[in-house]
């Protein structure tokens, strides 16, 4: 039964991928590039949803895990000429190891303590890049996945190649996350989230299950980091500012922190915000400083407004309202 369901899901992901493929052929370069960025955000946000929404651990420092993935992929590519697929695998593994270490500490901490620790990590880790020459200091190092294979035709652009890689990675990782969340592990996480004592009394190893969540989440974040640096082409400390961790968290909250199915909402919004900000700024003819700061202001305002008014995300909100309505009618 379970197997059947997951293979049906696989079918859904294949169909969705095919639609993406068709769309990718019909829109202009900018949109294709944005599509690649959306794919990056989908991966990153799904890792936060897994961690925060399901296992109940909040990480304000996911940017740091993305950085681990990005740097290890770039180092593998630049220094050891690893094939692209392998660099992604390395990114996942390196970040997962980092996540496991952090997870061991995290399993002993709760809410605000964990949040503060990960925040300190997000601020601190990128500055380490300056400590070791191999990371190229503030300038960073290149990460080049190479040109698209010639067999795809001459007018197959670089951006479209990014989009293909990104979309494929996003589909695979989302499918994996969806299945993990539906598995025994996902159930254990939710049990531990809502009542740690009850969960451990029912025989769940709460600490172990939290560490596992952190490890998996970090691995996926590492993949997101490698994908992100692929689209930028360079890995440097400035690509992983605190603002990135903020944005990803905002994306997760917008998506509904416990609803993986909403992940596109957050990802698309994050990509759309700079564009919307640009349009608004041009229309209203606001000052130059406001124009530069508008995207940041919009992200923070959205985060605050969502937490205040749709705290559990649009999908969960809709479900609750629906359930409440049904209960009322029943009465």
């Amino acid at each position: 039964m379970h197997k059947l369901k997951s293979s049906r899901n696989l079918g859904f992901f294949v169909v969705f991928g095919f639609i993406l493929f068709l769309v990718g052929n019909r829109v202009d370069e900018l949109r294709v590039y944005q599509g690649a960025t959306i794919a990056v955000y989908v991966v990153a946000i799904s890792s936060i949803i897994l961690l925060t929404g399901y296992s109940g651990q909040v990480s304000l420092g996911h940017g740091a895990l993305l950085a681990i993935g990005a740097y290890s992929a770039a180092v593998a590519r630049d220094n050891f000429h690893a094939p692209v697929v392998l660099t992604f695998v390395i990114a996942v593994l390196a970040a997962a190891i980092g996540g496991a270490l952090l997870g061991v500490a995290a399993a002993r901490l709760s809410g605000p303590y964990l949040a503060g620790t990960t925040l300190a990590l997000a601020i601190g880790l990128p500055s380490l890049a300056n400590q070791f020459p191999i990371f190229g200091g503030e300038q960073g190092i290149f990460f080049d996945v190479g040109v698209p294979p010639a067999s795809l035709g001459e007018d197959f652009t670089q951006y479209k190649w990014f989009f293909w890689i990104g979309a494929l990675a996003a589909l695979v990782s989302t499918w994996l996350v969806a299945n993990i969340l539906r598995s025994r592990y996902g159930r254990n996480w939710r049990a531990g989230r809502s009542n740690e004592t009850a969960a451990s009394l029912s025989g769940i190893n709460v600490a172990g299950s939290k560490i596992l969540a952190f490890t998996i989440s970090a691995g996926i974040a590492g993949l997101a980091g490698a994908l992100l640096s692929m689209t930028i082409g360079v890995v440097s400390p400035s690509a992983f500012p605190l603002a990135l961790s903020f944005s990803l968290l905002t994306g997760a909250v917008l998506s509904g922190v416990s609803t993986l199915s909403g992940v596109m909402i957050g990802a698309v919004t994050l990509v759309a915000i700079p564009e919307i900000a640009d349009v608004v700024a041009t229309r209203l003819g606001v000052s130059e400083t406001l124009t530069t700061n508008l995207p940041g202001l919009m992200v923070s305002s959205l985060l605050i407004l969502t937490v205040l008014f749709v705290p559990n995300g649009p999908i969960e909100q809709h479900r609750t309202r629906h359930a409440r309505k049904a209960a009322k009618e029943k009465n």
């Binding site: 925060t52 929404g53 809410g111 989230r193 903020f246 985060l303 605050i304 937490v307 205040l308 559990n312």
Partner: peptide
């Protein structure tokens, strides 16, 4: 809901961004 435990943390972080 699932957000309850982390909402204050996320909210003050949002405030930080807004103030900046």
């Amino acid at each position: 809901g699932p957000i309850a435990a982390v909402a204050p943390i996320i909210a003050t972080l949002g405030l930080l961004g807004l103030i900046k």
